[in-house]
Design a protein around this nucleic acid. Structure first.
Lengths: 256, 256
DNA sequence: CACTGGATTCTCAGGCAGTGAGAATTATTC
DNA sequence: GAATAATTCTCACTGCCTGAGAATCCAGTG
């Protein structure tokens, strides 16, 4: 009875939790065992242990889903949540003005992680694209944050992502040129990167309003049609929201 | 070297994660070890393992906080998140009309769990009260959901909470009378339970618009001043939001 | 620059938590 | 009521986890 796979309980638990996403909200234990590559008997034991803690939930039909406790743990004090809370009013404002998809994102593990997304109120599709990841160098939200990172972070990114270094952009050329331009102008606006006919515009949110070493801690962005009539207003409005958010974040380090 | 305390790795990890909340966003490893009652050396090992997975984060100053991965896991497919997403527009509406604290909550483990809270836009205090728990029988959000549960759930609650059974309410008397009244009228309105001078009003959100066995799956509520001028409109507006949400939830069981 | 106190990592033997195939039991279906 | 699937139980076995203590790193501080 040798454990052929050398993974710990914790690894397995994380694999189990990772098996769920927006498309697969609930799974049978058998599927779960298969996907996570855990022996069936063991899967049952783990699932029942996690269910007891409300990290997972057993639905009446026997399938498994994430439990409330997991969300509760994350929601009570995750930095993503406090950022989201602080940003909400400003995102609301941007959304109210343009009535287009408005997003808040951060960098995590060399990827862009969407923390909040407000869809057009009327739009039918509201499937939570929150908590989605995407490569930094393919979206304006990513570039705009990468540009305002300490130099060694940027270098590390190029080392880890060789293809990013070779990337070229329609209007601005190489990625280094692009980053320099972003640092000069303070924003990024890319046409047709996500989808044809759409433009992604993003500005950084800084850790401090003014100072020597400003670093981007987040990005606010909107996705608009390429021929958007209010195009000229997009960047100024995003800038205002960004500054408002930075100000809201700054004076409240700890409430105790 | 006997493990005196008979708790598993998983227990300990949960204790660690539970140690963080809105007031204590970051802790030193020493504090963490003390709070969770885990030997220092072990605490360090667990923390570094969890940090590697981005479940925890090490800040530059050496303190520990929750990591992005934890939030990501929960946010991608937790039922709380999808409920929140669906409810957001309706909560927005309620908030826009009354400009008072508007809340969405569910029952979990015989407690009320606040899933989302919109504060008055102007209010300074926006400290995330999301993911807060409170006893069912002390708030209108709780009563209104308890009233519309299968009988055995209600019985179980009384068994587990003897003091709840003895509870009396200013206007309606005993808790059973109160629940019956709620079932008749379809809402709950309590004066001065949370704070003097405030009124909590709540309506249930049903799993199905019409049917034999309707069960409450959530509650929408507002907290208003006792002498609120729009008091008469509160319940109708909440009802409309509740029905809207129920309709939004119903036709989308699985998008695949 | 040595000194000091704290934070952090490493070491290592030993025990028990976790393992997982298979049997046993319980739902479910036809 | 047989057949099938879902779920739990059994039970040796083993290697992950343990945790005190030593060793190392890291600011300050005088």
């Amino acid at each position: 009875m040798t454990t052929s796979s050398g993974d710990t309980v914790l690894d397995r638990v994380l694999r189990i939790l990772s098996a769920f996403d927006a498309r697969r909200r609930q799974l049978s234990v058998a599927d779960l065992a298969h996907v996570t590559d855990i022996p069936l008997a063991t899967a049952y034991r783990l699932v029942s242990k996690l269910s007891a803690e409300d990290i997972l939930t057993r639905y009446p039909d026997g399938t498994i889903g994430l439990g409330m406790r997991l969300w509760e743990l994350a929601a009570r004090s995750s930095p993503a949540v406090s950022l989201r809370t602080a940003a909400m009013p400003f995102l609301d404002d941007v959304q109210a003005i343009f009535r287009q998809h408005t997003q808040l994102s951060v960098l995590d593990d060399n990827e862009v992680l969407v923390v909040e997304r407000l869809s057009s109120r009327n739009s039918v599709v509201n499937q939570a694209t929150v908590a989605t990841r995407m490569p930094i160098h393919t979206v304006s939200m990513g570039l705009v944050q990468l540009a305002f990172q300490p130099p060694h972070v940027i270098d590390d990114y190029f080392l880890a992502h060789a293809n990013a270094a070779k990337m070229t952009y329609p209007s601005s050329g190489s990625i280094t040129t692009t980053l320099a331009q972003i640092r000069r102008e303070g924003f990024s606006m890319l046409d047709g990167m996500l989808d044809d006919g759409t433009t992604g515009a993003a500005v950084p949110v800084f850790n401090t309003l003014r100072g020597k070493n400003r670093t981007a801690i987040a990005a606010i962005s909107v996705v608009v049609p390429e021929d958007f009539e209010q195009r000229a207003a997009v960047i100024p409005v995003l800038m205002a929201a960004s500054r408002g958010l930075a100000r809201a974040l700054h004076p409240v380090p700890e409430t105790e």
